[in-house]
Design a protein around this nucleic acid. Structure first.
Lengths: 341, 341
DNA sequence: TTGTATGCGTTATCAC
DNA sequence: GTGATAACGCATACAA
């Protein structure tokens, strides 16, 4: 492969000029640039990013740490990040953790190793470095999405899941439901807790008492929603609506109801959370809250770019909150018939 | 940040020894290794991957080029790639093309620029370099997945979509269906053509004549499946089954049928293709063909590792074909009632 | 506007 | 088993 030296020789200039022509063309005479470009085309030259990176001490990569990419929520988020990364000449390095903290910590150390310039997190656990900032070396640029407790000082982007959850419950209450069950996410995740407390807030506002007997826990998967729905039905058949902490579980719940022969929304109203495409085409189409997942990724990447441009800026505590909105489809209606026990 | 020189000084050895201790510990006396490791821990040293890469002329990155990651099929594929990449100390660089050939070509040139060592493709179009191999520089390591015409010489991994499609149609024919509609993918994609020809093969085997009037084209999206189903129903209400080129479109079709009040599977049988998780929880659960998407990604990455280990090997024409299997759920049944026109 | 010289941090070759 | 040293290819401070 040709290198910058070859180009310099062929174009009859110095390597410095070639370098400048590539990175700051405004400093080079147009005629010179032309000769250089001719040489580049001639030799099929491609700048060596590794060498440039070594010199400039940056890789132009950003790590995206997620437990798995194998679900629509995460992949939309990653798509958003990639969109703005690409527009800013940066690349996305995929870091799948499978929820393992050691793997996550290893990804963080890749920043010190210059494999990446920073990291965007969508994890339920934080890397150790957040709680134990390095004393000698400087803190690597980190951006958090969605899932984190309020006491950390990372730049972050999220939606107001608390209010969003209350909003859905309010919708059900307005329809006339008074016994509203819930299927939550895993309660060791901040996001789940937030959505659960929003559910309780919604009940409070509607003057409905919380009944722990009709709150079931899932793990955000279709299967867990299906299972939780069955458990709920077996435990107490008197509720007329169920609100799920995400669309996947709501879809699972829908499937369980269909199997039990309980009609939605006539006998049971069901709501989701996230607004996955699949929810719009379920039977019946799912009432849910739209979460701007792609935009969350985009905003996270923009925060990352900010951190990268202004190192050790105290923009550390920047927080972006994106708007949600209720999407009413056909899985919710006023409670009509009483189901038989 | 500490570098290898600092470690050497603190440990009282030369940089060469430190480097060896890190990469080939067997060549270094255990006692020496201990001193070095102590120094590493002491100074919080992290090897600079950029410098190592420059010297060794490799980045340990592999680009995954996909039109979008925002769908379960692609993200499962990427997850598979990441799994085996991680196990082999390589990283995945996400390359989203949005179907743009220039973007794709740019990703290819990143290999020459040493940002990545190779590229795995899940695209409907091939980068120019495949048709016009470079004369002076050597061909970058490329691996193709699923979507490509048979005349290219890239290492590749796929399933036998042709037979898989015929298999589904065979299932419907066995149930007694004689008018079987199809919803295909975009016909400029090899994968769609393959699945369509498999559909026709299935009809042929069942001695059913092909009727172009009940073949509709979609674009693999939920919405397009929904739209195509409506078009089909309006054009000819006499068919009793419809086979869709992927699960997303089948789910869309299910939604359209439900809206029209046509019961599945009593009045209409529906089949999908891919076996997304969502298909198992639709109403009714979807009969489909399981495609081992994650495994396809894993196999693709293994082919990549092979290419990387044995440069200019003529393993170029290696092809891996992974098995599919029919998954019968409740969206298919023997044709019972005649729908009213 | 252009050229010269230095260093980024590592690996690998060759000695010892 | 270990050490000295020459690349790897580029960006930039400084000179001209």
């Amino acid at each position: 492969m040709a290198n910058i030296k070859d180009i310099a020789r062929v174009a009859g200039v110095s390597v410095a000029t070639v370098s400048r022509a590539l990175s700051t063309p405004s400093l080079v005479r147009p005629a010179t640039i032309e000769r250089i470009e001719a040489a580049i085309a001639d030799l099929n030259y491609e700048p060596n990013h590794l060498a440039a990176g070594l010199r400039r001490q940056r890789s132009d990569n950003v790590i995206v740490a997620v437990p798995s990419i194998f679900n629509p929520f995460t992949s939309a988020f990653v798509e958003g990040i990639e969109n703005v990364a690409r527009a800013n000449k940066m690349r996305v390095l995929l870091g799948i953790t499978e929820g393992d903290i050691d793997t996550l910590n290893k990804y963080v150390s890749m920043i010190a190793g210059k494999q990446a310039d920073g990291m965007i997190l969508l994890e339920k656990t934080l890397p150790d470095i957040v709680r134990n900032p390095p004393t000698k070396s400087k803190m690597p640029p980190l951006v958090a999405a969605c899932e984190y407790p309020p006491d950390i000082t990372l730049p972050r982007v999220r939606t107001d899941d608390h209010e969003a959850s209350a909003l859905v419950v309010g919708h059900l209450a307005e329809l006339g439901h008074t016994r509203i069950a819930a299927i939550t996410g895993p309660l060791d995740q901040f996001m789940s807790k937030d959505r659960l407390s929003g559910y309780k807030l919604g009940l409070l506002r509607a003057r409905i008492e919380v009944d722990e007997a009709i709150i079931a826990t899932g793990d955000f998967s279709l299967q867990s929603g299906y299972d939780a729905m069955l458990r709920l039905l077996d435990a107490d058949p008197q509720f007329t609506a169920v609100t799920c902490a995400n669309d996947e579980m709501a879809l699972g719940a829908l499937s369980a109801l269909q199997q039990r022969g309980i009609s939605v929304p006539d006998e049971m109203s069901v709501t989701g959370f996230d607004d996955l495409r699949f929810g719009a085409f379920s039977s019946p189409p799912l009432t849910t809250v739209h979460i701007p997942t792609v935009e969350i990724g985009e905003a996270a990447m923009r925060l990352m770019l900010d951190s990268l441009l202004q190192p050790d800026q105290v923009s550390a505590s920047r927080e972006v909150i994106l708007p949600h909105r209720l999407i009413v489809r056909q899985s919710t209606a006023a409670p009509k018939k009483r189901r038989k026990a």
